[in-house]
Design a protein around this nucleic acid. Structure first.
Length: 227
DNA sequence: GCGACAG
DNA sequence: ATCTTGTCGC
């Protein structure tokens, strides 16, 4: 699986994406998750700092954090984000002492040109439910949702519903939510909204974002931190 | 050929 | 994502 996130070429990355997509499952979840984690990454000149933040779900209660630092080996290419930060994110999640039931990822799920964004990629590799939560659109057409928190519309691509455009805070730019793995559009919207209060970004993702940036401040130039 | 393009 | 000054609003 390590190889599935560290291709040598763009062509190889596309092959991996197509192969892993065969294991993708979009379904309505049976049980509500008890533990939700969120992951995000920050970058310095040559490192990627990934952070994972774990919460008890409903109500949201912070449990623990974890992070990793590794060399950035793949460029950012729209559609291939998983190959730039996926490996580090999975590593950070793996450092949590308790495994989450679901993970929120900063990026797209199936609302992706190949139907396999970073949230789907991570979900398939980890074998657990994931939800993509992006701040902007990668693909798809949609109608602007209403202006109040909780308003949302479907995101369509090639005639199919691939996600939702969700107003997580009144009168603020919406978020692009799409199921990653073992989730569906409606449950993804519900979970994202339940994880959000006061801010545009869901609390677990805000925590992961803060931590990844703090780690960059603290360790951007440290020689030996890797194991 | 031109425009779009998660982080 | 990152860089980076001022500005608007709670």
């Amino acid at each position: 699986m390590k190889e599935d996130l560290r291709p040598r070429t763009i062509e190889e990355a596309h092959e991996i994406q197509r192969a892993l997509k065969k294991k993708l499952k979009i379904t309505s979840p049976k049980k509500a998750p008890q533990l939700i984690a969120a992951a995000d990454a920050a970058f310095s000149d040559d490192f990627v700092f990934a952070a994972g933040s774990l919460y008890r779900y409903s109500p949201l209660v912070h449990m623990e954090d974890a992070f990793t630092r590794e060399k950035a080996r793949f460029p950012y290419i729209p559609g291939l984000l998983a190959f730039r930060e996926g490996h580090a994110i999975i590593s950070a999640i793996g450092k949590l002492t308790v495994a989450p039931d679901l993970v929120l990822i900063d990026g797209q799920g199936i609302a992706h040109p190949e139907g396999f964004g970073i949230a789907s990629h991570i979900g398939v590799i980890l074998g657990i439910p994931t939800i993509g939560c992006a701040k902007s659109r990668l693909i798809g057409e949609y109608e602007e949702p209403g202006p109040i928190k909780g308003d949302w519309t479907y995101l369509y691509h090639r005639g199919a519903r691939v996600g939702a455009v969700v107003r997580t805070r009144s009168f603020v730019m919406p978020l692009f939510v799409s199921p990653g793995h073992l989730a569906d559009i409606e449950s993804s919207v519900e979970i994202v909204l339940k994880c959000t209060s006061g801010f545009r970004i869901p609390e677990p993702l805000r925590a992961a974002d803060r931590l990844s940036k703090k780690m960059r401040r603290d360790y951007a130039g440290s020689p030996a931190l890797d194991k």
